[in-house]
Write a protein that binds this DNA or RNA. Structure first.
Length: 426
RNA sequence: GGAGGAGUGGCAGAGCGGUUGAAUGCACUAGUCUUGAAAACUAGCAUACCUUUACGGGUAUCGGGGGUUCGAAUCCCUCCUCCUCCGCCA
């Protein structure tokens, strides 16, 4: 959520961002509506304050009069307050309504994009900011996609998941299950080495938390919702991890804060069917290790680069060919100012698969979260939040299986071997 | 799930209808003193919004929401959370 004052002072910049993010042109007047509502809010606040102040001082007078036995005068004053009371409560109602409307509109405005975010509407307009400069694995004609490898080596079973739950809920088996565990531990250990503190967090969150990071109301339909208890299954560990700092005021020397955590993630998103979502390519439940940083506004872009560099090391250790994309405006998420996507090459599908998304949200989330810090001058300001996948498992597994397939089985990269009691998955 | 009790500033803890944003202690910050530190002393120390060039002024907030009253941290309703006991359970 952007701050009203920011919108007021930077209306043109915000407008430019709306265009970049494909915000419908006929609704560009939302900014003016926001500014109008805020002015109304201020006016109502000012008159309300005056009336409440009068009520307060008269009430004090009434008290003093009663104490000194002047009951008649006191009763006279009491009548006076009744009129004031009426106008104060109607003003309060108006105030409340204006605030709700304002909040409503503010929630609809996406984050402003960073200067370097390219124009564009879809993933086709994303820019490859770091291409793979080595050779791509060529497995020849006999290469088989991971969903067939899964059957061959009994690594995971999607039909079994259908029986237990439904489509998109895989069951990992034997060495496949162990591989999941190995990857989770590998990612967490690497995160710890890089300075991230590990958290194990709830995978159900309340509505406040869902709202805090922007899952509500923007992505309401994409979350599983436990209606009876008003909980949401998390779409990513970003939600609980970042909400740890909801309603917190930090000191400047608390920065940077580095958090990591493993959780299963749940996404309802219906999606399409066919080859692109076959196997592990798209799921309703998947495992992911997330990294989150909370940083001083002046340093958040420096931090974004560090996080990108860190994710890169993970892929290098896993020996997977990857490239980095700078997402165009239309593909940058609602809350993000700048997002880099990592894609690994899956050699049998001959496709690049997104495995990580690293974003700077600037103060967009912290404004909702009320995540602030005291700066040197004692002023309270919004902090910046960033996060990234480090990493999402299924597509990593897909690429590992496909790229490392041999006649004798699937080779396990060196970095993972300490986590497994086999070097070849067969 | 049932029966009781409790939620006040960073923490502890008063107040239980009338200038109380809230005593006191601790913590914290600055200053005095000191070669330095400790101790002592002095001052400061919540958040949001409105208003002001500024100094400042105003309003709201004592778990959340609603109500009673001229006036609520204090009374009532409701929800949430925590504690104790019982039940159930990995």
């Amino acid at each position: 959520m952007l701050e009203v004052n920011y919108i007021k002072e930077n209306k043109n910049a915000v407008l430019k961002s709306l265009k970049k993010k494909n915000f419908p042109a006929e609704e560009f007047d939302i900014l003016d509506r926001i500014i109008d509502l805020d002015n109304r809010r201020k006016k109502a606040q000012a008159s309300l304050d005056v009336i409440l102040g009068q009520i307060k001082s008269i009430s004090n007078e009434v008290g003093t009069l009663f104490k000194s036995g002047k009951g008649a005068e006191a009763n006279e004053l009491k009548e006076k307050v009744k009129g004031l009371k009426e106008s104060s409560s109607s003003l309060q109602d108006e105030q409340k309504q204006v605030k709700t409307e304002l909040e409503d509109l503010l929630l609809q405005v996406p984050n402003i994009t960073n200067e370097i975010v390219p124009e564009g509407n879809s993933e086709d307009d994303n820019i490859v900011s770091k291409d793979w400069d080595g050779d791509l694995p060529d497995l020849g004609e006999n290469a088989i996609p991971h969903w067939e490898l899964a059957k061959k080596y009994n690594i995971f079973d999607l039909e079994l998941g259908v029986k237990l739950t439904g489509a998109g809920f895989p069951v990992y088996i034997g060495k496949g299950a162990k591989l999941q565990r190995a990857l989770i531990n590998f990612f967490l250990d690497e995160g710890e080495k890089a300075g991230y503190t590990e958290y194990e967090v709830p995978i159900l969150v309340n509505a406040d938390s869902a709202r805090g990071t922007g899952a509500l109301p923007d992505k309401e339909g994409q979350m599983y919702h436990v209606v009876k208890d008003e909980f949401y299954l998390i779409p990513t560990a970003e939600v609980p991890l970042t909400n740890i700092y909801r309603d917190v005021i930090l000191k400047e020397n608390d920065f940077p804060i580095l958090l990591t955590g493993f959780t299963p993630c749940f996404r309802r998103e219906a999606g399409s069917y066919g080859a692109h979502v076959r196997g592990l390519n798209r799921l309703h439940q998947f495992d992911k290790v997330e990294i989150v940083q909370i940083q001083h506004p002046d340093k958040s872009y420096e931090t974004l680069d560090k996080m990108v560099a860190y994710v890169q090391t993970l892929l290098e250790k896993l020996e997977l060919p990857f490239r980095i994309l700078t997402l165009c405006g239309g593909d940058t998420s609602f809350a993000s100012a700048l997002t880099y996507d990592f894609e690994v090459f899956s050699a049998a599908q001959k496709r690049w698969l997104e495995v990580s998304s690293v974003s700077n949200f600037e103060s967009f989330q912290s404004n909702r979260l009320k995540l602030r810090f005291k700066d040197k001058n004692g002023k309270t300001r919004l902090a910046h939040t960033l996060n990234g996948s480090a990493m999402a498992l299924p597509r990593i597994v897909a690429a590992l299986l496909e790229n490392n397939q041999t006649e004798n089985g699937i080779k396990i990269p060196k970095a993972l071997q300490p986590y497994l009691d086999f070097d070849i998955l067969d």
